[in-house]
């Protein structure tokens, strides 16, 4: 068999599998563009016969979707900011300083990363109620930190450990303070790692469901995940095309990240998940 023929064969096989994997998502997009009649047809067509954006229009003007979206943006951005700042400083400490308890903290962080959320959810719920934070955006940012921070720390520690310590020492000798050397020399080196960490944290926060379900029960603070599920159950009959449009809109940030920043995402994977 010629190499060229082999390549064609393998490519066809791979691409048919990829289409199968992506199929449900393509079907989601197709459904969101179909008119109601087309959606509830017993003879479904793969592509919309008369593509329409009416569901998107309804979604953005007649539902709480824009509010949920805005909440999600605020929550995910705030979580990412808090987590990245804490994790960058913490990872610097874990990667570059010697002190008692350092290894214990590092192991505890790894353990946190494995802990099931359902174990934490009940006491966290009680804590938020007691602090008067139930039904606030802050409660979700705090809760999301619980699962995003351990991962971020682990990831950034791996990235920082990969940078040779000599360049920081050179900066110390050249007259920089410990933090000066960190900002001048180490931080620029781990910038790709910080981007990976930020993307991961953002996606985790954007997609989170359980904490949002338990901690927030008001439309003005509800994020997309629970918000869209509310739309599913609150309607008299389920408007699938509307839900598919919501799903598409909800996935837009991910599509952007995967399209333009995929390399950062994959790098984060390798560093944190596999080496850890």
């Amino acid at each position: 068999m010629s190499p060229r023929l082999a390549r064609t064969g393998w490519s066809l096989l791979a691409w048919s599998l990829i289409l199968l994997v992506a199929g449900p998502l393509l079907w989601m997009v197709a459904t969101s563009l179909k008119s109601e009649d087309e959606v509830f047809s017993l003879e479904p067509t793969l592509l919309p016969v008369e593509p329409t954006l009416e569901h998107y229009a309804v979604l953005l003007t007649e539902t709480a979707f824009p509010a949920y979206f805005a909440n999600s943006v605020v929550i995910a951005t705030a979580t990412t900011t808090v987590v990245v700042v804490l994790a960058v400083l913490g990872a610097f400490s874990l990667a570059r300083f010697r002190y008692r308890g350092r290894e214990a903290i590092a192991s505890a962080v790894l353990l946190c990363y494995m802990l099931p959320s359902v174990v934490l959810i009940i006491p966290l719920y009680l804590l938020m109620v007691r602090l008067g934070l139930a039904n606030t955006i802050a409660s979700l940012v705090i809760a999301y930190t619980s699962f995003a921070l351990p991962y971020a720390l682990w990831l950034l520690r791996t990235f920082m450990a990969a940078v040779p310590v000599e360049i920081e020492q050179a900066a110390l000798i050249d007259g920089a303070s410990r933090m000066g050397a960190f900002f001048d020399v180490l931080l620029p080196q781990v910038l790709p790692g910080i981007i990976s960490t930020a993307l991961f944290t953002f996606i985790l926060a954007w997609n989170e469901f359980l904490f949002a379900l338990v901690l927030v029960n008001a439309d003005d603070v509800r994020p997309l995940t629970t918000g869209v599920m509310t739309m599913l159950v609150s309607g008299f009959n389920i408007e699938w095309s509307l839900l598919m449009a919501a799903s598409v809109m909800m996935s837009v940030p991910l599509i952007i990240i995967l399209a333009f920043l995929q390399g950062h995402l994959v790098r984060g994977f390798g560093a944190g998940a596999v080496k850890g």
Partner: peptide
């Protein structure tokens, strides 16, 4: 006395150049 105040300079085996700075910026850093 911390390294930066000992009035010393050091050349490392790995050179330890700052990878994100140009040659001029590297030399100017101290």
């Amino acid at each position: 006395i911390p390294p930066g105040r000992r009035d010393i300079a050091m050349v490392f085996q790995s050179y330890a150049l700052y990878p994100h700075m140009t040659v001029a910026q590297n030399i100017a850093y101290p």
